[in-house]
Simulated assay, not measured.
Amino acid sequence: MVLDVDRVKAAKLGLSAEDVVLQVVVALNSSVSVSRNFWIDSQTGNQYFVGVQYPEDVDRKLDDVMGLPVKGAGQPTPVNLGSLVTPRRKSGAVEINHAGLRKVTNLLVNTEGRDMGAVAGEITDIVKTVELPEGMRLQLQGEYGRMNDSFRQLSLGLVLAAVLVYLLQVTLFRSWSGPLVIMSTVPLGFIGVLWMLYLTGTTLNVQSLMGVIFLVGIAVNNGVLLVDFANRSRLNGTSAREAICAAASTRFRPILMTFLATVLALTPMALGTGRGNEANVPLARAVVGGLFSSTFLTLFLVPILYTIIVRKFNAVDPRLAGELGDSTTGPIVS
């Protein structure tokens, strides 16, 4: 229902179009929605809204509304609302939402028993078949939009973490090739993450991506142990192949102990035992799965890459001889 206010007649009574509409709102609802007045109980400190309203009448008709009294400033006698407005019926939305000064229509979808990404994918496929008028577009927002924003931020964080870890190793090893071999253990962890999430029926969500970021810092530890030991051995004149093989056999026990300690510590969290641990389950499962693959594949891939890369690039800076070994170390053999 739309009420068209006769502004000329209303102005003669000292009323604006807003004053007329507000008096109608007060008559149909209460003065609380227009002007909020409240009273505070001095004993209890509670506040109570104070307002006036017409008696409720479920059988109220349009003629009754048009007969509501409207009074202007300085006007002794009120006039009927029907003398100032013209009613007309119109079909339209009860509430109009705006985003960036543009009208939007919200369509709410609830999910139950299914992950949000799969439901959003099906909705996107359906939306692609709909022909929209010019100037109109469809966009998925709400929880799904926030989830996508989190994915983008976490993906950027994953890349940044990998770059920072690599640059830190370059500074410590004073070599570009050695840290490159170590960073090859990170993709090996991704293999285990995907398999663990698939086998356990866990979705790829914000928590699991956080686990992947944690995995970047954990997975490189094994590679650091192998490459550092191999570099120290090469300072004594050992060939690259013999040095990395000796590192794999010598450092196997520390690597296995670190792997077992981390996995056993995260197992209760990965199983989701106890209340309130459901949110951490994807994170723990991602880390555990990544450790499984990165730990065991590192023992095979790192020696191969180390042998190949060291033959082309000298992975040990001779200036490190005084820091990694005795000053009387032998020549470096590739």
Rank of each mutant, 00 (worst) to 15 (best):
residue 118 A to G: 15
residue 202 T to F: 01
residue 1 M to P: 02
residue 113 G to L: 14
residue 47 Q to D: 08
residue 183 M to H: 00
residue 279 A to K: 03
residue 330 G to K: 10
residue 265 A to V: 09
residue 199 L to I: 09
residue 185 T to C: 13
residue 287 V to R: 03
residue 315 A to S: 08
residue 143 E to I: 07
residue 192 G to Q: 14
residue 127 V to H: 10
residue 141 Q to V: 11
residue 188 L to Q: 03
residue 133 P to M: 05
residue 213 I to A: 08
residue 318 P to W: 06
residue 289 G to V: 02
residue 152 R to Y: 09
residue 127 V to E: 14
residue 153 Q to V: 00
residue 269 M to V: 11
residue 278 E to C: 01
residue 312 K to A: 05
residue 182 I to P: 02
residue 63 D to R: 13
residue 240 A to H: 00
residue 73 A to V: 10
residue 205 N to I: 02
residue 264 L to R: 06
residue 322 G to Y: 11
residue 334 S to V: 05
residue 165 V to M: 00
residue 90 K to A: 15
residue 199 L to Q: 10
residue 310 V to Q: 13
residue 297 L to D: 06
residue 195 W to R: 12
residue 131 E to R: 12
residue 116 M to R: 14
residue 2 V to R: 01
residue 2 V to S: 11
residue 134 E to T: 11
residue 74 G to E: 03
residue 36 R to P: 01
residue 41 D to I: 14
residue 160 L to E: 02
residue 304 I to E: 08
residue 133 P to K: 12
residue 273 T to F: 10
residue 134 E to V: 09
residue 210 M to D: 00
residue 126 I to W: 14
residue 71 K to E: 00
residue 146 R to W: 05
residue 122 E to C: 07
residue 82 G to T: 11
residue 201 G to A: 07
residue 18 E to W: 00
residue 327 S to T: 07
residue 112 E to G: 13
residue 176 W to T: 07
residue 150 S to I: 00
residue 24 V to N: 00
residue 185 T to M: 15
residue 327 S to P: 04
